[in-house]
Structure formats: C-alpha cells, structure tokens
Design a protein around this nucleic acid. Structure first.
Lengths: 191, 191, 191, 191
DNA sequence: CTATAAGCGAGACGGTACGTCTGGTCTTGTG
DNA sequence: CACAAGACCAGACGTACCGTCTCGCTTATAG
C-alpha cells in the first residue's frame, strides 16, 4: 500500500522522514473525525502532525489525495484476503470499519469530490471501490447461495455495499447484528 | 416547501426580492454541477446570481444550508404524492433525479457535512432522508409483495435507497431499466 | 445657525421632526468624544439618536457635513459678539471650547477632510475658521496694543489660533492660565 | 528610523521583501494626497503598491500606524541635526515639508486619530511631536535671542509650531518668506 | 573529505474567500 | 411628505488558507 509517492530519485539527498507519513495521516484522521472534510486544512494537518506545511505538500498534491490515502490506510486490512472468514464476519468487519468517525466524514467526502475531479475518481475507484467489490464477490463465491449466485453481480454489489453505506453513512444509524443477518438473508446467503 | 427562512417581521421595511431566491438556488445548482461542492463559494454564487453577497447571507447562514435547499428544491416534486404511480415508475424517477449532475455533487456533500454538523444533519434528515423513506414505504404499501411486506422496513429502506445511491452516486454508473427491475425483483415486488 | 438644510418645499406633507435634529447632533458629539471621527458611522449615529438612517441622510449628505454642524453647534455661542469681554476672557473661552473631548476629535478631522474635499473646505472655512479669525481680530481691536496693532493680521491670527490649537489639540496638553497670559504677553496685549 | 517592525525572529523562514516597505509607504502617501485619510483603504494601498493585502497587515496593525510611518518617513530628514543651519532655514524647511500635499492630509489625520487612540498618540508623540520640539529648541539655542530665551519653552514651541500648522495645514494658506521672517521677529530672533 | 542533492522547519509571498459591517439607495406601510 | 423599518448593491474590513517561494540547516550518497 504505497501511500506517499516516492521522490523521483530516492537514493540521492536526505531521505524522507518515514515517521512523518504516519504522523500526517494520523492527524488527517483525527481532524476528519473532529471537524469533517470541508473544515480540514493542510495547515491544520501540518500543525497537528508537528510538521512543516512543505513536508505535506511534498508528499501529497491535493487535500482529496491526502484524505483518500488516510481512509485507505485504515481500510486496507479489511480488503486483504481473509481465508476462512464467513460472509457474516466480513460484512460485520466492513460495517465496523465504515462506522468509525473518521471514515464516516471522509468516505462520502471523497466520493463527492470524485464526482467532479477525475483524478480523485480514479484513485477512489482503484483504492476503495474495486477492493470492496472484490470483498463482496469473495463472499458470494464462498457460499453455495441460491440467490446470490443467480443475481447480477453488479446489482449484488450495489445492494450489499449500498445497504451498508446507506445505513451507516447516510443515515448514521446503528448497524447491529440483525441488520447484517437480514441483509444476508435477503440476498439468499444461507445461515 | 418553504426554503429560505422569512425575515423576523415580514410586514415591516422593504420586502425581500422573491426572484432573488430562485436566482440564487439556480446559481448554486449550476456551480455544483460544474465545479463541485468544495469549490463552491458564496461569492461565486452571488456573482453568478447577479446578487450582492449580503443578500445571500441574509437568507442562508451556511454553505451547507444553501446546498441542502438547492437539492431539496429539485427533489421536492419527487417526494410529493404520485397516486397511481407504480413502484417501478417511482424508483425510475428517483434514479433520474439523483443522476443529474448537480444532485450527484450535492447530495453526498450534504451527507458528508451532516456527519459532522448536527444542524445540517437535522435538516438533511428532515428534508431529504425522511421524505425518501416515505417514498419507499408508499411503494411497498401499494403492492401485495411477498417479501417486501415481511422484511424489516428499516432494512428495506436501506437496501432500496442504498442500492440506488451506490449505483448512481458512489459508483457513478448508469442505472438502466435492468437495474431497476432487478432491484425490485430482489425485494419481491411482483412484475 | 441653519444646520440642516430645509426640504425644497417645507410647507407640504408631514413636517420634519425638529427634535430629531438635536438628537442626531447630540449623538454625533457623544460618539465623537467616545470613539473619534474615523470610527463614527452614520448607522451608529442613527441608532444612538433613536432615528432611522434615512432621517439622517435626508438632512445631511456627508459624514463630514454632519460633523461640521455638530462642532459649529457647540462653538457658536463662542463666536457671537461678547461686548466688554477682555481678550483674556475670550481666549480662555476658546481654549475651553476646543478642549472639550468631542471638539478635539472633530476639529482636526474636519480640517483633515477639508484638505481633500473642497465642499468640506468651504463649509469649514465659512463656519469655523472665519468666525474664529473675527474673534481674534475683535480682541486686537479692543486693546491699544503696541505689538498686536503693528504685526500683520494674518500672522497674528496664525500665532494666536495656532498656539491654542497646537497646545490643546495637537499636543493635548493642559492650557492653563499661564499659557493664556504668556501668549497675550508675547503678542503685546497689555495686562 | 526603522519604520516597519521587524518579524519576531528575523533569522528563521523566508526573509521579508525590503522593497515592499517602500512601495507600501509610497502608495500610502500618494493615496493620502489624492483622496485623503478617510478614503484611504488598506486594500487600495496594497493594490497601488503591487503587493498582497496580507503583506501590509503583516507589517502594520492599523491604518493609523501605517499613516504615522508614512508621515515620519518623509519628515525624518528634517528632524536630523543640521549643523550650521540658521533658524530661518530650519523653519523654512519645516514649512516646505508640511506643505507637501501628502503631508497635509496625513499629519492632521494622525493627530485626529491620536486624540482618540492612545497607541497612536504615543507613537505620534514619540515620532513627530518630540522631534519637532527638539528642532525648535535647537533653533532657540543657536541664537542669542532676547525673547526666545526668556519665554517659556512650552509656549515657544506652541507658538512656533502652532503658527506653522495653522497657516499651512489648518488654513491651507501659502507660507511665504514674509511669514517665516515675521514669526521669527515676533519671538525675538535677530536678523 | 568534500561536493552535491534532497529533506526539513520556518515563515514571507501574491492570492482568494470568508463572514461582517457600513455606505448610500430604494421600497414598503403608517402617520 | 416624513418617518421607521429593513432590503438592496457595492465594497472594505481583518482573518485564514491556499500553493509557492526563499532561507538556513540537516542528513544522506558519490566522488
């Protein structure tokens, strides 16, 4: 998960401070959770991270870029393969990850920016949407489902991911076990 | 759907220019579609609307407030009762409305702000989420559905609205007739 | 002392509220003493006078105009003839009048505006400078001075009025009896 | 005569553009002469100086501060010691300096603000009044005057400076050689 | 051991927008 | 007509960040 692009010639000159990357992304997540995307400023991030403004700009070109990486950084473990995990476990993990305050503020902000900025869109698609789609597909593959295997994969993805997003992000409601179970029932995943 | 709050005592002093309301909201929608939420500025709105900045601030206190009203203003007809409309028609109308460029940029921005600003949250809930929920409920009530009537109404709302939002707003994909039909099939609405 | 210009046809329609004139000028003086000229606003004056903004604008066209009248209004008694008054008495009265807080803030502000705005200059010359010159000339005429009668009247005016202004307004120092006496000695007015 | 305060720690960060100081003060003087103090805006100064608004605010906190420095900047050479100069020369130089249009508008503006703002008063006293007082005292010290040496120094200062100010600034009249000679005669400076 | 190269903190730079305030004008209803 | 009220357009206020640019200094590799 290469977040910050490396400098053109990483072997010459003083190497970048690796700790700064983490400090910056932590600051982004903290500020996102506290104040939201539109109140997030690069200056604020730098100050919170204890880093010069130029250090942030050297690594990320855009506020949106920075936020995408901050989000991906926390969702990454979720997207990695989880051999042997049940659909219910995976869905539960997704719900938990998106429910974290910094993810709530950030995720839809990124999507909203993506609607208007093609660069953000590409990154968001590549780093957020595609992995979550693969997650859903892995689920449906692991079960001998009667419905999930017949339904259009596009629709299945929209229904499962959409329901989670709508419940957790849009409505900000609690996604309890009943929700997860009900959703899986609806798409035909056997208990 | 009274959008702009009226002045404290509307009978005293020079009355507000009613035309300005429409000019402002039109400008908001145009700029949202062109540049997106985070590039939207009150100064830009005022300039585009041909109105003084103070005229905007007199009527809306917040960029988010203004955007909520701009979105509601276009979605309002959708939320009004449509006697005799089939679920398929209603869902189709919803998909079309959300697919318009200014709605795409605005809707998720509003939700994203709502995650962090309680005032926005309350307005969004009242003016956007609740009406769309009633729309879904009206649908499920009009059909003798085998599934939709047994499934939890909360879940039904999340699945239907979520699938639309995910398809149209998050993924930015085309929501064709097959999608609408497939979604209705999944929740058990008979053809 | 016609302060507010009368309306074109004063006999038709509702007559002006005469009390408002005094309320406005009082408010001007109070605010001048408290905040100074550059912090003086028409809105503030209207609010303090308990009068609508338009009532002020109907009577004065300019902030400087308004201030000139406010100052003249308090200096007027000084400029009227004082038969039998000694030069010392007249000078003392001038010093006292200019030393009042609202006069301090206003007088030089008016002069400063006058340096740049011909309309203000004409009013200031007519209503402030000329009368005070006549005051000084009345003084020198009443005494059989050895010096004051031989010195150029222009210079005499500059020296007497200038010394007072410099002591009271520019330096903001106390103008005691010794100052008045010393100044008269210098220009040759016998005790 | 250090006008603009230096930054707290001048050795860190990018150094200030020294040329900007002069550009700004030049702009202030030009605008003062053209439009006067109350029409002077920081935005206008910045625009005229070809400098960002923040660059002005970084160096001066107040419009009055800025004007004080602009005035001092032009009067400074006058206040420096002029060994061998006659009182007549010095007075002539003072008259000429104050008679310049930008000085006229600025000087009275500063005094007028000083009457109401203690910070301005202190700066004006320190940078304008005290030096000009020393100038007058140097004059009276260089001559074996019969009057100037017996008269109260306070009064002498008020009379000389006051006469110049009244003639040049208040009345806006021409201060010719006769005025200078007459004033010196009056206070007893021998030819 | 000394270039050379890049990172870093600090902070100034020209800009843009913020949300507020005032100026001066206008448009109502009421007296 | 005058007046209070308050909306209107215009534009300055002083602040906050933007993204860029110097600085002096530090920390690496390459010669």
């Amino acid at each position: 998960m290469a977040t910050a692009p490396t400098s053109p010639n990483a072997l010459r000159g003083r190497p970048r401070n690796l700790a700064a990357n983490r400090q910056i992304l932590d600051a982004v997540r903290a500020l996102l959770a506290e104040r939201g995307y539109s109140a997030l400023t690069i200056e604020g991030v730098a100050a919170r991270a204890g880093v010069a403004k130029s250090t942030v700009y050297r690594r990320w070109t855009t506020k949106a870029d920075l936020v995408v990486d901050a989000v991906v950084d926390t969702l990454a473990p979720l997207f990695d393969a989880h051999p042997g995990a049940s659909p219910q476990d995976l869905l539960r993990a997704l719900v938990d990850a998106l429910g974290r305050p910094e993810a709530r503020a950030a995720f839809l902000a990124v999507i909203s920016e993506a609607a208007v900025d093609p660069v953000v869109r590409e990154r968001a698609e590549h780093l957020l949407i595609d992995p979550s789609r693969r997650l859903v597909e892995r689920c449906s593959a692991t079960v001998a489902s009667t419905v999930a295997s017949t339904v259009d994969p596009d629709l299945l993805f929209d229904v499962v991911a959409g329901a989670v997003i709508h419940r957790v992000l849009v409505r900000g409601a609690d996604a309890d076990e009943a929700f997860v179970r009900g959703l899986l029932d609806l798409v035909g995943v056997p208990r």
